[in-house]
Nucleic acid binder design. Structure first.
Lengths: 337, 337
DNA sequence: CTGATATGCGTTACCGGTAACCTCTATCAG
DNA sequence: CTGATAGAGGTTACCGGTAACGCATATCAG
């Protein structure tokens, strides 16, 4: 019965002063074993837990991490939240979740909510715009910051080498004998990934006389541009910016009755759940999202109040599934419907 | 520059007592307009925000909601979190996210984290086991509780009439002329949905001489049981417990080269993003998840400390897409491969 | 036996707000 | 002129912990 007991109640029940109870729960010295056990017994019996707010007030620490992001239900962000939450809970930290406005990406409001609650560290997630003033305020308050995937001026970045992701995709396609491939992306300024370009550059890195690449913009939820291009019949491989594009690509192939991977190989990026939901299952580049989330939480928990956590760029890894295969010998020319 | 100013600093700068600043920020009477404006000016100038912990300590209120759930990255739960977060932020509440152990569903630990932080209300999400003692402790502390989707003894429930969802699916299939349909579910005790049975009952409600239904268990990630049944060639419609099953069902159909919706109509449940990611897009029953999340947050924000929020059961709605169509005239017998 | 050093625990003040109560001044009816 | 009343603001104590410091009692070398 975790009722509204305070440290004073516990102290009284144990016949000691409150500070002694405090010492017991914080495993400080200067308490005899006998006293300690007696106090602990009372605590256990009543399942008492110290009030985190009171403790936070006097310690200037809240044992709380903040996560700020728009598009919290976006698959990628969800993975981050899950990993962060797991680490936080395991370390008796709580996770404060605040969203930015998904339409404007304006995040100052959310950031201030987190700051006024005195979180011990803030993790920045997906699409968000923070003003320099806000960032400076965090700096001044010594709140450790970390950004995952969305770069912020002056904030350490924990992410993946997306250029390398592009290279891995290109390498795989080239080795399978594909000679003309597409990089499909959506550069809508609100939803686009900051690493759209990096992936493209990596993908293009392997271009050469026997490996032609070109970029194609295809807005989420549409297939027209893509199918128009595929009709020309020369493309045998696709690498897309983000697994979010995959449903559109599969749909486009379906509309043209193109067999994946028989006639067209498809590679996604980020290795989200959708890769296993589609048939055939999609080869994708794993971007270490779980590791990133975990490391972010750990880094902030471990960083002392004044310190700066370190960023890190992980290496991506190709996960081969069913959507990629040898290039067809004679790519078919498609007829216009 | 939201530095570490306190109410005392602001008071001093404005030449008043701290309590006056307190009155200004809380819009209380007994402050002259002139004084109020002067104080407000100082506050604005320094972008000062009161320390939420200190305020919470003395008020016994934290302006924080807790969300407890396992499987935070589960699509359905994600929708809830997103909706709750939006309402919370809009009302200057924060959302504290805590996960239960996904393997054991044990949630007492998480619940205690939330309680010791004095959240103003707790929303219970997906699969979790709470001990009666823990629930009683919340009761005793007057913490308003609400459970979405996962029933808890004595806790008001905000959910959807899943029996009706089953009926809607059956109705749709029957009207399309299907006469022999399957209810596909996964009754794994850890992952299964508490409404598995309700949906089945609703689906069966419409069974009759011209509408035969049967239930089939098919674990997530597999297709063997399903394809074995489909090979008999008599099934022309499927309703599945949860959109999570859809990828398996589509894969099963693909393995047998069954055309959806030409030869087989498929209806999902919950109307998650996957319905639009698959081709053809899947007809599904919308379970009002956004409304549920929003209402939960609002209810808890509005419920005064001692009160009990009210539960509510929403009506589901069928969302027709591309995966359902008229029953084929002559269902084909499948040959064993 | 004395002074030095631990050991074990309590007292006091304080973290940053706010509720409850108090004081002072102005205004006004009788 | 007196007393009542309202308006504007301050004083004090407290929320539930903890840091800093203080003070017995025990132990032990010399």
């Amino acid at each position: 019965m975790t009722s509204n007991l305070t440290i004073k109640d516990i102290a009284e029940l144990a016949g000691v002063a409150p500070i002694t109870v405090s010492r017991v729960i914080n495993q400080k010295p200067d308490v005899s074993k006998a006293t300690s056990q007696r106090v602990q017994a009372i605590i256990d019996k009543h399942q008492w837990r110290p009030n985190v707010q009171a403790r936070g007030l006097v310690r200037g620490k809240t044992y709380t991490l903040g996560f700020l992001s728009s598009g919290i239900s976006t698959s990628f962000v969800t993975y981050l939240v899950e990993a962060i939450e797991r680490i936080a809970t395991a370390n008796n930290y709580a996770l404060l979740l605040v969203g930015a406005d998904p339409r404007t990406r304006e995040a100052d409001h959310g950031f201030e909510i987190l700051m006024s609650r005195g979180v011990d560290g803030i993790i920045l997630g997906g699409p968000l715009d923070l003003s320099a003033a806000t960032l400076a305020a965090a700096e001044e308050r010594n709140i450790p910051l970390l950004t995952l995937y969305w770069p912020q001026e002056g904030v350490p970045l924990l992410s993946v080498d997306y250029r390398e992701a592009g290279r891995l995709a290109a390498e795989h396609l080239r080795e399978l004998g594909h000679r003309r491939c597409l990089y499909v992306h959506d550069s809508n300024p609100l939803t686009c990934d900051p690493y759209t370009t990096a992936r493209w550059e990596g993908f293009r890195d392997l271009a050469g006389p026997d490996f032609h690449v070109e970029a194609l913009q295809q807005a989420y939820g549409g297939t027209a541009t893509l199918t128009a291009r595929l009709r020309q019949g020369d493309i045998t491989g696709i690498f897309c910016q983000n697994d979010r594009c995959l449903p559109d690509i599969y749909r486009g192939a379906w509309e043209l009755a193109i067999d994946v991977p028989g006639e067209l190989s498809v590679i996604g990026c980020n290795d989200q759940a959708i890769t296993r939901a589609l048939t055939p299952q999609v080869t994708s580049v794993d971007n270490a999202k779980h590791r990133i989330g975990e490391q972010a939480a750990l880094a902030l928990i471990r960083t002392p109040a004044g310190g700066r956590p370190r960023g890190k760029i992980y290496k991506p890894a190709l996960v081969i599934r069913e959507s990629t295969g040898p290039a067809p010998h004679h790519p078919k020319k498609r007829s216009t419907p």
